[in-house]
Every structure is written in C-alpha cells, then in structure tokens.
Nucleic acid binder design. Sequence first.
RNA 1: GAGGAAGUGGCGGAAUUGGCAGACGCGCAUGACUUAGGAUCAUGUCUCUUCGAGGUGAGGGUUCGAGUCCCUCCUUCCUCACCA
Length: 961
Amino acid sequence: MSETYQPHEIEVKWQRKWEATELYRSKVDWDKPKHYALTMLPYPSGDLHIGHWFAMTPSDARARWMRMRGYNVLFPMGFDAFGLPAEQAAISRNIHPWKWTYANIERMREQLRSMGAMFDWEREAISCTPEYYKWSEWFFKRFYEKDVAYRGSALVNWSESLQTVLANEQVIDGKDERTGQPVVQKMMEQWFFAITKYADELLDFEGMDWPESIKIMQTNWIGRSEGARATFHTAESARGGAISQNAENARGGATSQNAKSAYGRAGGSPSTEIGQHPIEIYTTRPDTLWGATFMVLAPEHDLVAKITTDEQRAAVEHYIDEIAAETEIERMMEHREKTGVFTGAYAINPVNDERVPIWIADYVMITYGTGAIMAVPAHDQRDFEFARAHDLPIRVVIQPEDMTEPLTEERMTEAYDGPGIMVNSDAMDGSVSSWQKGRKNPAINRVIDWLEATGKGEESVNYRLRDWLISRQRYWGGPIPMMYAGDQIIPVPDEDLPVELPEDVDFLPTGRSPLTYHEPFFKVDETLRRETDTLDTFMCSSWYQLRYLSPDCDAAPFDAEEAAYWLPVDVYTGGAEHAVMHLLYTRFFTKVLRDIGVYDDAAAAMRRHGRDPDGAFDEPMTVLRNQGQVLGGERQGHFVLCSGRVAGERMLAERVEVVDWNQVPAGFEGYFGEIAHRTENVLHLNMAGVTQFVEVQPDAEIVIPHISGENNVNQLQHHLDIQRMSKSKGNVVNPDELVAKYGADAVRCYLMFNFDWQKGGPWNENNIKGPQGWLHDIWEIVAAGAPSAAGDPSVERDIVRKLHQTIAVINRGLEEFSFNTAIAEQMKFKNALKAALRAGSIGAEVWRDVMSQVIRLLAPFAPHLAEEIWLRLGWEYSVHTQPWPEYDADLAREEMVDLVVMVNGKPRETIAVAVDIDQERAQEMALASGAAQRSLSGKAPKRTIFIPGRNGSDPKVNIVV
RNA sequence: GAGGAAGUGGCGGAAUUGGCAGACGCGCAUGACUUAGGAUCAUGUCUCUUCGAGGUGAGGGUUCGAGUCCCUCCUUCCUCACCA
C-alpha cells in the first residue's frame, strides 16, 4: 500500500459494496436491543443543500456508533414529496408535478448516497405515492369517525398569491412563511383536526428528552391561560330619554361627554329593538370585573350587525370595511393607534348591573377567547390606551398597597397591572390581588367562586392554540377522501381508497386547483361530488416514521410486528424551525392514533415478545436534538475613522472610531474605510477599492459606540460576517462540488468538527484542511505499515493509555451530540501516535492492536476511509459490523499527575506526583513549593484546601494566605 | 411588548459537578526542503512593564476558588407578538 489517499477511488466503490452486501438492512431481531434513529426527511426540491449534509451526516455517525455498540439500528430515509413547489413548476414550466418530483427524487437519492450514510433504502417512503397517501386518507377517515376531523366554518388565512388557505403555523408576520406574500383573513368552510382537544396533553412533556427551547416554544404556542368567562347582556335600545341623546351625539364618534355620561347604573327601562343578546367574555382578571367601563367586540363578531343602532350603522360598517381591507401585516404593525367605533349599544355588567357602551375595535381578535372583551382601562394597558384615545372613563378597582397616594384616574399615565386590594367592587372589596395568576391569586379565586355561586360566570381555561386547518385548495397533495351529496357529507368507502390524484389535469393560470375543473375527478355521479381540497403536507409528515417500518405493507398503515419492535423513535434529529408545526403535529397525531386504537395490534405484539407497551405510543420521539444552521461567509467590517501620523505606507493611528457609512465629517484628514482585514493591530481599510494600512498604536483610543466600556483593537470587526445562505446572495455551498474536491469523508468530518452542531455557524471552506489533514495522516500511518523494530514499553503503555482516554471522550461526545470534541480528541491521539512512531517507540504488536481500535473509532465519522484501511490491514469485512472499542478505565489511568499548587485560587506551580497521592502528602508538598514559600514569606497559611483529581484530572492544593 | 438562547484569541470553537481558560483545527510567524510555493515537514503563536503578573461583553456579589452560580447593565440571535 504505497499510493496516497485518493478518496474518490474508494468512496463509490465502498458505497456499492455496502449496498450489494445489504450491510445496512435493518431487520427485526428481538435478541438485540433496538435503536430507531430518525432524521427529518427532505423535501425533494431538486438539490441537496449543505444543510442536509449538516443535519444528516452527524446523525449517521451517531447511528453507526450505536450499531457498533451492539444495537440493532434502524436509520431510514424518504421524501416529503407533496407541496407547492412541484405545482408551481408545473404551472411555470409545464412539467407535471409527478415528473418534476420523481426526477428530483432520483437525483437526490444519488446525492444522499454520496454521503456514505447507513440509510436502509429498502425502507424508503415517499409521501406522494398512492401506496403512501392511501393511508393518509385512511387516517383522515378514522379521525372523522372519532370527531377528530370535522368540517367547520372559520376565519382562515387566505393567500391570494397561492390561492389557498394556510395553517396558523404557516403564517409568519402576516405573510406566508414560504413565499413571503401577504395573507388576508377570510371566512371559509374547511376541514379541521381538533388538536385543541389535546392541548393539555400536549403541554405535558414528562419523560421527553427534548430541547428545553422547543418545549417552551410549544408551551407558548399552545398558550394556556386560566381565568373566567362571564356573560354580559345587551341593554335595551338606546331610544328615548337621556340615553337616546347620548347615542345620537355619538354619531361620527363618541365624545368625552356622551361616552362618560353613558356610564352609570342601568335603569329598569323596558322595550328594546336590539333584544337581550348575551355577550360572553373571557378574562384572566375576573378580579377587575368591577372596573369594566366599556366592552369591545372584534369587528368580525357575529353580534355586531345585530346590536349596532341605526345611528351608528354607517360608522360601524365603514370601520369594518376598512379593517377587512387591511392585510394581516398592516393589522400587526407595532405602536399603532387604538382605533374603533361605538356601536350605539350598551351592555349590562353582570357583577354590578352597570350599563357600559359597546365598541368594536381591531385590537380585539375574533380568533382569541370569545372575540369580545370587557375593557378595564385602569388595569389593562390596551384598554387604557383605547379609553384615553376615545375619552372613555377609567375606574380604579385594584388599589396598590405601597403607594403614598391612592391611584386615581387623573394621575394615571398607564394602566396598573400589579398587585393590590380590590376597591369599588361591592362585596369583594378588600380582597387581596397578588402577582399570581388564576386560582392562586386570592382575589381571583374569591371572585370566581362568587361568579359560580351566583351563576354570573364560571372558571375557564383558554388556549391560544387553534384547531389545525388541513384543507388546501391545491392539486399536489393527498386527496381528502370525502364526498358531498348536497349538504350531506359522505366518506369514501375504505375499499375505494386511495382516492387517486388524476394525472391528466391541466394547469391553467387561474390560480385555482386543477381538481376543481377536472370533472371526471370531482363528479362521482349525478348527485355525488368529490371533495377537491387536498391534505396539508404536514399531515403526511406526521406519521412517516411509521411508514418506514413497512413501506410496502398494503393491509395496514404499518406492520404491527415491526412497530412492536422499533417504536418509539429513540433519537430524532432535525431543524428547530419545525418547533410549532411538524413537531407539534406529529405528537398530536401519535396521541390520536393511540386513542383510536391504531396501535392496539402493535401493543399486543409487544406483550407477546415480553415488552411492556405502557407509554410506548404516547409520544413519537423520545429524544430530540436540533442542529443549528450553516451560514454563509460574507459580511461587512466596521467602518472606521483613523487619525494619527502617517509613516511610509501605513498610518500609525492614535485614535480609531467606528462610525456609520455616511458619517465622515467634512474636512476629516485621516484614513477612513471599511475594515477589510485585520491581523493583530494592523487594519486593512478598504475605501472604494483602494486599500490603506493602519497600525493601531498600543495606547490608541478605540471608540465603538455600541459597545460600552473601554474598547480595544480586538473588538474591531473585519469583513467576514455571517449571513444565511441563499441563492440571491450567491453564497450557497454545493455539496456535490465539495465531495468531488475533497471526498465525502472529509466533508462529513469538516461538518462535524468545525461547528458546534447544535448551534451551527459560518461556512469557511479553508477550515476543511484540518479534518482533511487528519484523514490523510491516518492513511499515511497505515500505509507506512507496522514498524519492524521493537518498541519502548513505557511509550507503548502511554499510547495505549491515551487511546483509552480518547475512547472515553469520543463516547461522551457522541452521546451528547458534541461531534467536534469527538473528532478533536481523535486528532490529538493521532498527533501523539505520529510522534511516538517517528521516535520509533512503537513495536509491531502494539501498532496492530492500536490501529485496529483507531480504525474502528474512525468508522462512524469517515466510513469509507475506515473500511478501506481496515481491508488493507487484512481484517474481516466490514469494519462497520465490528464491536466498538471497549473503554478500560484501568488502562486509561495515569501513573503520574501534576499536582497544581494554587495561591488564593490562582495556579502558580505544578509538581509531578503519583496519581494516588493522599491529602496530607499533597498539602505538605504544596506548602514546600517555591510558589508557596514566596507567597507565604514565612507566615502560616490561613487555610489549605485539597482538591483530589477525579476521573484522571489533576489534584490541586489551594493555599489561602 | 413577552419569552428563550448566547457573548471566550486574528477565525471556527474547547473547558463533566464551580477546580491549571484557550483543547483540537484554521490562520499567522520563523526555519528546513525547494527553480518556485497557495505543496510538504519542524518549531512557535492570549496579553503585559516577563525571575513576575493580568485576562472569558461591562459593573457588582457569593466562594478557599467563578468562563461556569446570583444581581444590574450592554450587545447579538431566535420564537411569539394588541392573547384580554
């Protein structure tokens, strides 16, 4: 073996051999412990991105490690193949979505193969195949039977540009998260999944090893809040008498006068043309009910049309039209004024029979709570702003205890939402309201009890989470297996599943789904019409981990025997961007399947094999880890003004100030420009393509306005910032080119070595030299062959010791997804081995033993290289089925360690001592050391503390003087 | 506005439970070999007033001992956002 390391020659060869020998086929084997490692499946966009490599290859390394440790590992791959891009390609380029998608899948399969990952391709699942979506449809029907799927009318997010509705989770900042196009609200009949039924169970993360941040995001998304509901009733019509006058004056906007005078105890007056409509409100602060001085309904609220008086109708309708014309973005603009109009109607506050005006305003959301609020301006900031903007009364009902003067309307500049004593609240006066929420707050607790006793209201829990809207007005998705006969909904019989997507459709630029004008599809017979909406792709990806178990199974969505062995997923890896979408949906899906009995056969099979199914189907994935994002490498440096003396080619700067681009003062005489590069204290300034050199003097003044305190030259940023990769920025990295240039193993190792995997970071191709050099050195060491001379036993012993220390670090690194430290430790060991070999201190026997372990340690990271050199050393195929090197603590233990002598906690000196040194002897030696003698100068130490060396770390003695 | 994560050399990043800060790599410097070097090899590389000190965004605290824990502030990133 004399040739040099040529990755391209060995990588494809081994990929073929692994496939031919079915090395990665995962089969149920109850005699071995199972490990289901799953990484998020890609959307077949056409090209594998470096982000896919970053997510998948470390996951692969970990799966391989588990396999070598004796687990039966399942590590499948597939495609989330429904979705809009395919349809857009069809419209813009006249390619059928099938064709486009399958061509992309073909291509991406090859790219995925080039990773050298241990994917079991026999288990591949593709969500857009009829074999797959048959079961998505089947699940839909089961959900429908159990009232988890229902058809309802709701205000939905409508994307005009995509001509479809979107789930709440797909709307970011009022825009479609994919295209960035604005989204409007629209009332539509749609299919929903009742995810809110599971809200409380989804808040329970017991026993789940998921990142805290994901749990928090899901918790916030579900948004459980505790409070009360109360029912207000509209008062009689505002006609005749003093009240009528108020309403008439209110035309064209209520003035201070009439709004305030409208506030008062309700008279017992009669007849109404409005009628007594109940208006239910939800509040987290029932203790402030007595402070309600008006009500606000969302403009979309059902009652608005019924209660608006004739006098106010024009103003109200005008306002509603204005709101409807606004997009969600405009509606979410920050710091906007509190707008709204008076409806002319009044409501009676049930707690004190007060008559309060009813307004509509867009700060009340129809989608949250009941779409109506009681407004308590004294204790809610939004209500306060609204009251001040429209001259509505404010009444303090919670009096803070620690104020010198009592809180009054006149003195308030903002709402008070802190603790205090209830006042102006009739029988509830004196109750203590704390910072606590819900029943834990004594005042709230007391008011809820009273509301329930008097029948005026009740305790209530509210969620931010809304039911999952799954209808999409698109072609390229799983058909919803439902039919309509007039108003009647008729499910497609199971034996007719799947409802297949017709292929002979026309993609017309109407914006409408081709299914809606494909008569053979939607017209079942003269009376039956098929649903033309399709399933949200998130439904397909909610259960793909189950389809991998048996992708060819045609009797059930998955094979019960396979499920009994493999479920649940042990480790799931992927991006955190799915925190409140996919990751919440798949949890919900799993719980529904459990409740409707889909797992019953699998549970029975588990019992037959002696495994307890209890809890096995509550959650889809036991452990979740999110990788960070690989970012591009372009950026801007600080723009600086430098003043000082010019000496030859460079300026010796006494002052450097960071400024904005346009802030060069007139007549400035120094150097200025963007810092293009910096080496130590030398800045390379770029201004309009001209480079100037500035040497920052040691005592120079550095001014960086946004960083407080004394600044130094190291804080100056040069041109190498980080941005997301995107085609428009032209900083996208193509994995195929990298593989061609460096080989798959080097790319894998670079991705694992140069980033904190869970954090991600900037791309810097230069750094690939590190892992590349490491792999090269390993090759060279093997190529050089076993040394012929005898080794030095003490050096050999030391190498074996270091090897075992390395094993421990790799194990910990892989366990904790700290791939960079696992590789760093191997590089370190390689360096030590190389030095020992160069010194001729290793004999043939130890060399072979060490190499056997080194190659196995390398195998999860650089599978091709490891396989090649394993073969070349004459060992049995395959290195990937070899046992993982066993860590031996005795072999790893050092004989001599450094005793660290510390003075007041600062290390001052080290003394070589035996590893098992006792406290007494260590303190004695430390006190006798030069450092201790100098610091003590004859005096006795106040204290000495001995810190024994744990797990091979050095012992320490801290001397306090 | 609410919630979360994080700030460590020129750069990517290390540092079990509080216990020698800067592992490992890139870059850089010097040297060797070279017609050549953006190749390879060797050595060095936190700072300073260098027989000693100081140093992990700023300031304070707890501790024998703090990158790590607590408080205040600054900066960056992420998520949600008029949520009643």
